[in-house]
C-alpha cells in the first residue's frame, strides 16, 4: 500500500472504534489545529547544485537506527487495534530500522517484544506512590528495555476534553530526579520538556536525553515543541540528546524537527494507522514511506546526512 492508502485505511479503521479517546485533545482541543499551523509555517531552501542522495542512518545513545523516524510513546490503544499489536509494531519497526517507544503502562510481554531485536524505550510515570514508580523502573530494566523514559510532564495527571484520565501522579523534585538517575542503569530520557529551565534541570540531574514534547493530554494551550526548540537547543545541545514529538506526520515535518536540532523525531498516529491498516507490514510501510519522503527532501535541500542538516534549510514566516 502507498502512504496515502495506509493513512486513509488506518484513519477509517481507527474512527470506527473508541480507542480510549486517543484522538481527542485537552479542553478546547487547541493543539489539534495549532500544531499543524506551526509546522506549516516553515518552508525549505532548495540546494540542488552538487546534490547527492541523502542517507538517514544514525547512532543515538548506543543504538544504531536506519532512520530518525521513531515511534512516540504510546501503549493503551495498541492491543485494541490489533490483538497481537505489540508484537506487530515491534516487528514492523524492527524491519524499518526504527525504535519502539512504549507508554507508561508497560506491556506484560515486554521481554518478548525486546526479543524481536527492536530497540525499545519504555516510559515510567511519576506515580505519587514513589514505591510504585521505582517498581515500574525495576520491571522495565528486568524486561530488557534499551532506554527508560521518565514522563516528567504527567506530574498532575492527564486530561482528555473535560475529564481527568490519570490522577495517580505527583511532581518530581530535582533531588528525586537525581535519585532516579542513580537507580537507572539504562540511558535515561526525560520526556515532556517544554522550556529552557526544565531542559537545564534535566541536564543537571543527569538525563542522557530529553524529548521536547507537549505530551498528548497534559494541558490546553501548550506551544508546539518547535516553538521552544531554539531556547532548549541553545541551552543543552551537545550535552544531552534532544528528541522531539508533537503531531509530526510526514517526511517534511520530520526534516523541520531535525533542522531545529533534534536527533530523532517521534510519530504516534502514523504508526497506529499503519498497524490498523496492515499489521507489521503496515507499520514498516508507514515508517519507510516517511523516511523516503525525508530522504528525498534532504537530498533537495543539500543535506547529505543527518549531521549536515542545519537550521539554514528552513525559512520561517
Amino acid at each position: 500500500m502507498e502512504f496515502a492508502e495506509l493513512v486513509q485505511k488506518g484513519k477509517e479503521l481507527l474512527s470506527q472504534k473508541p480507542y480510549g479517546l486517543l484522538m481527542d485533545g485537552v479542553e478546547t482541543e487547541f493543539d489539534l489545529t495549532h500544531d499543524r499551523r506551526i509546522l506549516d509555517r516553515y518552508t525549505f531552501r532548495l540546494q540542488c547544485i552538487d546534490a547527492v542522495e541523502a542517507r538517514t542512518e544514525c547512532h543515538v545513545l548506543g543504538v544504531d537506527l536506519a532512520t530518525p523516524v521513531i515511534m512516540s510513546a504510546v501503549t493503551s490503544p495498541i492491543p485494541a487495534i490489533h490483538e497481537n499489536g505489540f508484537m506487530e509494531v515491534a516487528l514492523g519497526l524492527k524491519e524499518a530500522g526504527s525504535l519502539m517507544w512504549l507508554g507508561s503502562q508497560t506491556p506484560k510481554n515486554l521481554k518478548e517484544i525486546v526479543k524481536t531485536g527492536v530497540p525499545v524505550a519504555a516510559n515510567v510515570r511519576p506515580f505519587a506512590d514513589r514505591k510504585k514508580m521505582f517498581q515500574s523502573i525495576e520491571e522495565i530494566q528486568e524486561g530488557g528495555a534499551t532506554w527508560i523514559g521518565l514522563q516528567i510532564d504527567s506530574c498532575f495527571g492527564t486530561k482528555i476534553r473535560d475529564r481527568m484520565v490519570v490522577e495517580d501522579c505527583g511532581p518530581l523534585s530535582f533531588k528525586e530526579l537525581q535519585e532516579i538517575r542513580n537507580r537507572v542503569t539504562l540511558p535515561l530520557i526525560f520526556k515532556g520538556v517544554l522550556s529552557r529551565i526544565d531542559a537545564v534541570k534535566s541536564m543537571d540531574a543527569g538525563a542522557d536525553g530529553i524529548v521536547v514534547s507537549h505530551g498528548a493530554h497534559i494541558l490546553d494551550y501548550l506551544p508546539h515543541p518547535l516553538q521552544v526548540m531554539d531556547e532548549i537547543v541553545a541551552a543543552v545541545r551537545g550535552k544531552v540528546v534532544i528528541m522531539v514529538d508533537g503531531n509530526f506526520r510526514r517526511g517534511s515535518d520530520v526534516l523541520k524537527g531535525l533542522a531545529f536540532g533534534a536527533s530523532l523525531v517521534g510519530l504516534c498516529r502514523p504508526v497506529l494507522y499503519g498497524l490498523a491498516a496492515g499489521g507489521k507490514d503496515g507499520v514498516t510501510g508507514i515508517v519507510n514511506a516517511i523516511t523516503s519522503e525525508l530522504k528525498r527532501t534532504m537530498s533537495l535541500v543539500g543535506a547529505r546526512d543527518l549531521d549536515s542538516i542545519s537550521r539554514e534549510v528552513l525559512i520561517s514566516d
Binding site: D40, Y42, T43, F44, R45, L46, R250, G251, S252, K256, E293, R296, T297, L300, V301, I315
Partner: peptide
C-alpha cells in the same frame, strides 16, 4: 522557482527567498 510545488512539499515561495 518552486516548480509549482512538485519538487518537494514545503518548498519555499520564490518571494520568500
Amino acid at each position: 522557482s518552486n516548480h509549482g510545488g512538485v519538487v518537494i512539499d514545503f518548498a519555499a515561495h520564490p518571494l520568500e527567498v
